[in-house]
Computed example of a mutant assay.
Amino acid sequence: MSTIKTKDGVEIFYKDWGPKDGQPIMFHHGWPLSSDDWDTQMLFFVQRGYRVIAHDRRGHGRSAQVSDGHDMDHYAADAFAVVEALDLSKVFHVGHSTGGGEVARYVAKHGQPSGRAAKAVLVSAVPPLMLKTAGNPEGLPIEVFDGFRKGVADNRAQMFLDVAAGPFYGFNREGAKVYQGVIQNWWRQGMMGSAKAHYEGIKAFSETDQTADLQAITVPTLVLHGDDDQIVPIADAALKSIKLLKNGTLKVYKGLPHGMLTTHADIINPDLLAFFTS
């Protein structure tokens, strides 16, 4: 397996496909998944001459199941460790859900200062803040995330099946075409990871206020979101993010779910390509 070691000694698994002199695209996965969630996108772009990179977040997939560091700062620093180890420059960074939060923190804190980030894409992403607070009344109440924590602690295996078979891909909607393989693959990826990382990661994706990250980003940024996202509601995410970005473009997909990069890759991939070549 291809791995790098972070400054705090955590082994991070990564994939690196395509020509070493190709334009690099780095993909950042969502909770509680792994780099495998990007296989469709990685194959699409490597076949078009790009160099595609994806890593498993600490505690997820094939990366080390360490006890600590399950927060957005460590997520971004780990991604930067991969970029530095591979000596990537002018990278296009694409993040889904929690991975979108990772991209926002990475670009703001590491990518722009180092000059290694050229463009960013936030897909169904969690910024600026998911949690309902006095200053963010449109957010989701803490009870929603406490329910996620309880599900992970009580019966993670069943919870992961329920999420994948229901709201994540919109399979709970009337008339939806249900892909059993997609459900099983989501479950497989989730169960590869650490329950502790998943439990603590809920706080990271729900309570991290990334307003300042978005305001700091100056590279061209594409924000993609489905208006039927049942996991990260668009009104509290993309519609707010686009107002905070200095150089952002928003595209809303009518009726598409949170996991649209998988269920509707035939739509998402060409839109990513158009942004990368613009």
Rank of each mutant, 00 (worst) to 15 (best):
G201I: 04
E143P: 00
H60M: 06
L129H: 08
V123E: 05
P141L: 10
L239M: 15
T263W: 15
D36K: 14
T221G: 05
A85G: 09
N247K: 02
E84L: 06
A237P: 03
Y14A: 08
E200I: 01
D236M: 09
D227E: 12
A85T: 03
A125L: 02
S2M: 05
I53K: 11
V178I: 15
S241Q: 15
L43P: 00
G59C: 07
G30C: 14
Y253K: 03
L250P: 05
D71H: 15
V182T: 15
D236R: 10
Q210D: 08
T3R: 02
K109S: 13
F168C: 04
P233H: 11
G255Y: 14
V66F: 11
V121F: 00
G69L: 09
S34V: 09
T208K: 01
S241R: 02
L88H: 07
G255R: 05
H198N: 05
P113H: 12
D56S: 10
G255I: 12
L261E: 00
M192G: 04
A104Q: 03
Q158K: 13
G201P: 04
L161P: 00
N269Q: 14
M1T: 12
F168Y: 15
T40Y: 14
F44I: 01
D39H: 15
M42R: 14
K196M: 09
R58K: 08
A108R: 00
Y169M: 13
T98N: 01
S194N: 02
I234P: 00
Y14M: 07
K243Y: 05
A237D: 03
P113I: 11
V123N: 07
Y169D: 11
Y179M: 04
K15H: 01
L222V: 01
V107P: 03
W38H: 10
L140K: 06
N172Y: 13
V10A: 02
P127K: 04
D8C: 05
W186N: 03
L140R: 05
F160L: 15
Q189A: 07
M159P: 00
V182Y: 12
I217C: 04
N136F: 12
A81E: 13
D37S: 14
T263Q: 14
K243H: 04
G193P: 03
V163E: 11
V66W: 08
A195T: 13
S35N: 14
D71C: 11
A85M: 00
Q65S: 10
F275E: 02
L261Y: 06
P270S: 09
P233D: 08
L244V: 13
R57L: 10
T211L: 11
V232K: 09
Y106C: 02
